[in-house]
C-alpha cells in the first residue's frame, strides 16, 4: 500500500519532470519562433481572415525578402560580437547612387549597361562602407557600435546631400525597366526578389555552416584572443564580416529601390529596428558566437507577419511601433530566461 503509493507519487513526479523537460526543449528549440508564427497565424484567422489567402502570403513573402537580405548581414556581424548600425545608411546611399547612375533623366549612364553598372556601383558602396567600418574596428581599435553609429550618420547625411545634385525633389525617378523588373517580374513563377533573397540566404548559410571562414567567424565571436593564439586571422575575419554586411545591405537596397522604382535617400531610415529586432527575435545573440541563418529567416517572418496583420487590421503606425517594440522586448526576455533558467549559451 505504502510502497505502491510511493511508486505512483514518484511516477507522477517523473511525469511532471518530463513534461517540464519537454516544455524546456520546446522553448530551446530553434523552431520555437516558427511555431509561434504558426500559432499567431491561427489565432489571427478569426480577426483577419485574409491571412489565410495566397495573396496575403505572397505579400508577406515579398515584404520579407529585402529585410531578410539585410538581416543576413547583420547576423554575420552579430556572430563576431559586433553590430552594424550603418546598414540603413548603406541602403539609402546605395539607392541614390545607383539611381543617379541609371536614371533616364540625366543619369551618368544610359543603354543596356546602365542598370548592371548601377547595381555594381551599389554593391561597391556597400562593400566600401563595410570596409571602412571594418578597418576602423580592426586597425583603429574602435568599438563597432560607435564606428557604425558615426558612419550611419555620415553616410545617411551624404545620401540626402548627394540627392540634391541629381534631383530637384527628394528622390530620383525614371529608373530603367530592366532594373525595375527585379521588383515585379518572375522567373518561372517565382519573383526575382525571392530568387535573389533565397540565393543570398543559402550562400550565407553555406558560408556559416560549412566553410573555414564560417568557423572563424564563430570562433572570433566566442573569444578573439583564443582565436588569435590558435592562428585564426582575426582581423581579416572581422573585416570580412563587415564587408559582407555592407554588400548584403546594398543588395537589399537594389531590391527595395526596384520595388519603389525610385532612388530615395531615406529608404533605410526606418528599418533599423526591424533589422536588429528580427535577428534578435530569431535567437542570434548580441554577445557573439551564436547565430544561424534559419533563425534569422524565422525572425524576419515573425516580424513581417505581425506587420502585415496589423496593417490588415487597419492599425496605425503608432500601434505598429508599440507592438513591434513589445515583441522585441518579449523576444529579448525569452532569451534571457533561456539563458538564466535553462543554463543555455
Amino acid at each position: 500500500m505504502l510502497v505502491s503509493e510511493a511508486v505512483s507519487r514518484r511516477a507522477e513526479r517523473e511525469a511532471g519532470r518530463s513534461r517540464w523537460k519537454a516544455a524546456a526543449r520546446f522553448i530551446l528549440s530553434e523552431y520555437l519562433v516558427l511555431a509561434l508564427c504558426v500559432l499567431y497565424t491561427l489565432v489571427m484567422i478569426p480577426f483577419v481572415p485574409e491571412i489565410a489567402t495566397v495573396e496575403v502570403w505572397q505579400n508577406i513573402l515579398s515584404d520579407m525578402m529585402p529585410l531578410l537580405i539585410v538581416c543576413l548581414g547583420q547576423t554575420i556581424v552579430l556572430i563576431i560580437a559586433g553590430i552594424d548600425l550603418s546598414v540603413t545608411a548603406i541602403i539609402s546611399l546605395a539607392s541614390v547612387v545607383g539611381a543617379s547612375i541609371m536614371t533616364q533623366s540625366d543619369g551618368y549612364l544610359s543603354g543596356p549597361l546602365a542598370a548592371p553598372a548601377a547595381m555594381a556601383a551599389m554593391l561597391l558602396v556597400g562593400a566600401g562602407i563595410g570596409l571602412l567600418n571594418g578597418l576602423s574596428i580592426t586597425r583603429l581599435n574602435m568599438p563597432a557600435f560607435m564606428v557604425t553609429l558615426a558612419t550611419t550618420n555620415f553616410f545617411g547625411g551624404s545620401a540626402i546631400w548627394y540627392t540634391t545634385f541629381h534631383s530637384t525633389t527628394t528622390s530620383i525617378y525614371d529608373l530603367p525597366d530592366m532594373f525595375i523588373s527585379i521588383g515585379d517580374r518572375d522567373i518561372a513563377g517565382i519573383p526575382i526578389a525571392v530568387v535573389i533573397a533565397v540565393a543570398a540566404a543559402l550562400i550565407v548559410h553555406g558560408v556559416l555552416a560549412y566553410t573555414i571562414l564560417g568557423r572563424w567567424l564563430y570562433a572570433v565571436g566566442k573569444n578573439p584572443r583564443t582565436a588569435y593564439v590558435s592562428g585564426v586571422p582575426v582581423r581579416t575575419t572581422i573585416l570580412s564580416a563587415f564587408i559582407l554586411s555592407g554588400m548584403l545591405a546594398a543588395l537589399a537596397s537594389i531590391v527595395y529601390t526596384a520595388r519603389l522604382q525610385t532612388g530615395t535617400p531615406i529608404l533605410g531610415e526606418r528599418i533599423l529596428l526591424d533589422v536588429i529586432g528580427a535577428v534578435v527575435i530569431g535567437g542570434t545573440s548580441l554577445f557573439g558566437g551564436k547565430g544561424k541563418v534559419i533563425w534569422t529567416v524565422f525572425g524576419v517572418l515573425f516580424l513581417v507577419l505581425i506587420d502585415t496583420t496589423l496593417k490588415l487590421l487597419g492599425a496605425s503606425l503608432f500601434v505598429i511601433y508599440v507592438i513591434k517594440g513589445s515583441v522585441i522586448l518579449a523576444a529579448a526576455l525569452l532569451d534571457t530566461l533561456r539563458t538564466r533558467y535553462l543554463g543555455v549559451r
Binding site: F145, L286, S316, L317, F318, V319, Y321, G325, L329, A332
Partner: peptide, 27 residues
C-alpha cells in the same frame, strides 16, 4: 531586474515611447 541587454531593451522602449507619443499627439 529582467536582465535584458540594454541595447535591445531601450531600442524596444524607444519605439513604444514614440508610438505612444504619436498616438496622443495624432502625429
Amino acid at each position: 531586474y529582467l536582465g535584458i541587454t540594454s541595447f535591445i531593451a531601450t531600442l524596444g522602449t524607444l519605439f513604444i515611447g514614440r508610438g505612444i507619443a504619436m498616438s496622443v499627439s495624432n502625429t
